[in-house]
Computed example of a mutant assay.
Amino acid sequence: MADRDFKLQLKGYGLLTAEIFYFLPDYPSLLQQFVWQDYDEAPDYPILFKFLDHWRCEIEAAIHSVRIAHDRMIGAREFHHVDGEFTLQ
């Protein structure tokens, strides 16, 4: 059974790291950071925007800024099916 992340990579998704800087209502002068990772598809980033929408609705913290890094680690054109196997002793 293939891993969920591997299947996403074959579809063109890449590893997305988002640094979210935010303020809590109790400490408005303190800028805090949250790091989040998931596989997402550039350039639209639908999974990131879904997470940020959840953040805005459910978490009592005002987002100051978001910094992202995205890397597509493997793609369908880079994956080659192997028909045989060599055994070395």
Rank of each mutant, 00 (worst) to 15 (best):
M1P: 14
D5N: 13
F6Q: 10
Q9R: 15
Q9L: 13
L10R: 11
K11G: 02
K11N: 10
A18L: 00
L24V: 08
L24A: 09
L24R: 13
L24F: 06
P25D: 07
Y27E: 05
Q32W: 06
F34Y: 14
V35K: 09
W36A: 03
W36E: 07
D38A: 14
D38V: 10
D38M: 15
Y39I: 01
D40Y: 01
P43V: 01
D44T: 10
D44E: 14
Y45T: 01
Y45F: 14
P46L: 00
I47C: 01
F51L: 04
F51P: 00
L52K: 06
D53I: 06
W55T: 01
R56H: 08
R56Q: 08
C57N: 09
I59L: 15
I59P: 01
A62Y: 13
A62H: 11
H64M: 09
S65F: 03
D71M: 12
D71G: 03
D71K: 15
R72L: 08
R72N: 11
R72Q: 14
M73E: 08
M73V: 11
I74N: 08
G75S: 07
A76F: 15
A76N: 14
A76E: 14
F79R: 10
H80D: 07
H80K: 11
V82M: 13
V82P: 04
D83R: 09
G84N: 09
G84K: 14
F86P: 01
T87Y: 13
L88W: 12
L88S: 03
Q89E: 10
Q89H: 15
